[in-house]
Amino acid sequence: MSAPKITELQPGTEAVLVAIEGDRQLVERLGEIGFVQGETIVFHRRLVFNGPLILEVRGVPVALRAEEACCLQVRVTRT
């Protein structure tokens, strides 16, 4: 069974990134910002009208669309 995507979880979840899969450009950029395997991220909230997700990585909140966040496969550590 593959790991759930962060977008499938509820806001408030804390999780560890297990894999990042998707468009090369996108994965590269996500990595530069700090989204790399083994990193803990916090899913703070989803903005109104199904807008971007607010994820915290290495202490910084980052807004990203669900399309981008789909790349992030995680293992839930705290809900």
Partner: peptide, 9 residues
């Protein structure tokens, strides 16, 4: 072109 939105707050 693929669009993306990633913005640090």
């Amino acid at each position: 072109e693929k669009s993306f939105f990633i913005l640090e707050l």
